[in-house]
Structure formats: C-alpha cells, structure tokens
C-alpha cells in the first residue's frame, strides 16, 4: 500500500536533509504523452523508485518554460489571459491592492525591469508586460520556505503546497519578482460574492483558504492531463510553453530565433519566463 511508500519517502527525505533544494523523485508526464506514461506506470505498479534513478543518470529531462511574445501581445489579449488564468484557478478578484491575489497580471516595463530600465526604449515602455511566477531554476522562495511548502519540482515548476503552507510569508519577502500573493482574507468570501454576480467557478479546481500563499503554478493540473496551460490555450500566439531542456522543443526553437529578456538575471535566479522582444 502506498502508505509504506510514504514512509520510505520520509526516511529518504530525512537522510538527504543536508542537500539543499527539494529534489523530488518524480517526473512529470509530458503533454500529449499521457497514455504512454500510463503504460510505463503500470509496469511499476504505482511505485516510482525507478523514475528517480533514471533522472540521476541523465540529468533533468524537463524544464518547463514560458515564452511571452511581446510583439504579439495586445492590451486585449493580456486582459484575456489574466481573466482566463484567474478563472481557471478560481482566483478571487478583490479589487483592492492590499488584499489582491495575482497569478498573472499586467505591469509596465519600468516596474518589470527596474534595475535595467532603459528610459529611451520607448517601444517597450508602451507594452503590457505580463508578470507571473518565473519558476526560477534557483528559486529563493523555495530556499527560504521553512516547511517545503514551496519547492522546485524536477520539471522546473516551482510548486506551492497549500496544505502545508503555514503562511509565514517568508517566500513573499524572498521573491525578487513580487510574484507571490497571500490570502489575507478568505478567498471564498469574495468568490461567493462574485458568484452571486454571475461568476462561474472552475469546478475541476479547488479554491484556497485564508492564510496561505499562492501563485502561478504553470497549470500543473492541466499538464498532468496532457493539456497546455490555460494562458497558452487562451492566446497561443502570445504564450508559448515548452520544455527548455529539450533542444528540439518549440520554445528552444523560438528562443534560437528571437531576442528574449528575462527579469533580474543578475540575481542568479534563472527565471523560466522569457519575454520575446
């Protein structure tokens, strides 16, 4: 039974305590390869010890990345993306900067790249930059979390475990991109209010509770089902999602062809979100 496996993981986790960073043992299914993976799973009867080994041998096979095409983006598209994302994840719209929750949002060039702001770059200045969690390769938020509620998965996604989060907000202080939001109030209160005005919930996705931190999760729940992230689905011409570790992936191909910016590279966090300019 899986409980035994949990115990094993606990022991394994404890024995590798000294190692920094949460190196979880599981590889995410690739989009469109769900079925093949399912078969593979079958051989192991739900046990994933093998996957761990495989990864050690060859290094990470997956590192998800998001490319945002600043040439394709428009104000309307940006708004659509934000709307889609927040509805897909039942993010309430507090309409109040104090309590707001933002998974993805619009921001001006000046605030997106404050340290490398080039005031003569008038093209960029007018563009609606979309900000989201950068799913850094070296995430400071995961480093500071005292309970590993936020952690970097082997596929590069910086995940947030709402069930474990104690709400200390250390990650918010640590995130150099301001990507994290805290549920200052019970999100359901607001959602109910909005629902009364006609908002629909995404019934496949839970809500959060007050007192935990949340952020963009690269639609990990959709990836698991073999789908693209919601934002990509909303505007496939603006948002490009793919595997950075795979040289032949769509994103690598685009990056080879276009000039891209990443935020605050000098901090060494290695963001996985690229702005194509």
């Amino acid at each position: 039974m899986s409980m035994d496996r949990r115990k094993f993981l606990k022991v394994a986790g404890l024995s590798t305590l000294i190692g920094l960073g949460g190196s979880s043992a599981f590889e995410l299914l690739k989009p469109g390869k769900v079925d093949a993976e399912m078969e593979h799973e079958g051989h192991h009867g739900g046990h994933h010890g093998k996957a761990h080994k495989k990864e050690e041998d060859t290094g990470p096979k997956t590192r998800w990345a998001m490319l945002i095409d600043m040439k394709a983006i428009t104000k309307e598209k940006a708004e659509k993306i934000v709307h889609t994302c927040h509805h897909a994840h039942n993010v309430p719209n507090w309409g109040d900067p104090k309590n707001e929750i933002k998974w993805i949002w619009e921001e001006e060039y000046e605030h997106v790249f404050p340290d490398s702001y080039n005031e003569y770059d008038e093209i960029l200045e007018k563009l609606p930059f979309l900000l989201m969690c950068n799913h850094c390769d070296e995430p400071p938020c995961a480093r500071v979390c005292p309970v590993e509620a936020t952690f970097r998965r082997p596929d590069g996604i910086v995940a947030q475990d709402y069930h474990r989060c104690i709400g200390c907000r250390f990650c918010m202080a640590a995130c150099p991109y301001g990507s994290r939001s805290f549920n200052w109030l019970d999100p359901r209160v607001k959602l109910k209010e909005e629902m009364a005005k006609g908002r629909k919930l995404n019934k496949r996705f839970p809500t959060r509770m007050r007192g935990v931190v949340e952020k963009c999760n690269f639609c990990v729940e959709r990836l698991a089902e073999g789908k693209q992230p919601a934002c990509v689905e909303a505007c496939p011409d603006v948002m490009h999602f793919g595997n950075l570790a795979d040289e032949n992936s769509n994103v690598r191909k685009i990056l080879r062809a276009r000039i891209s910016l990443r935020r605050k590279l000098e901090l060494g966090t290695k963001p996985s979100v690229f702005y194509l300019v």
């Binding site: 005292p146 309970v147 474990r164 989060c165 104690i166 007050r210 935990v212």
Partner: peptide
C-alpha cells in the same frame, strides 16, 4: 503573524 497557526508544528514535522 503566521496565516495558519494550527499548522505551526509543520516546522518540526517537515524540518527544512
């Protein structure tokens, strides 16, 4: 200060 004080033992349960 913490948002989920009932989970504060997580710091001990999941030492990081």
């Amino acid at each position: 200060d913490i948002g989920q004080p009932m989970r504060m033992m997580n710091v001990v349960i999941h030492p990081t």
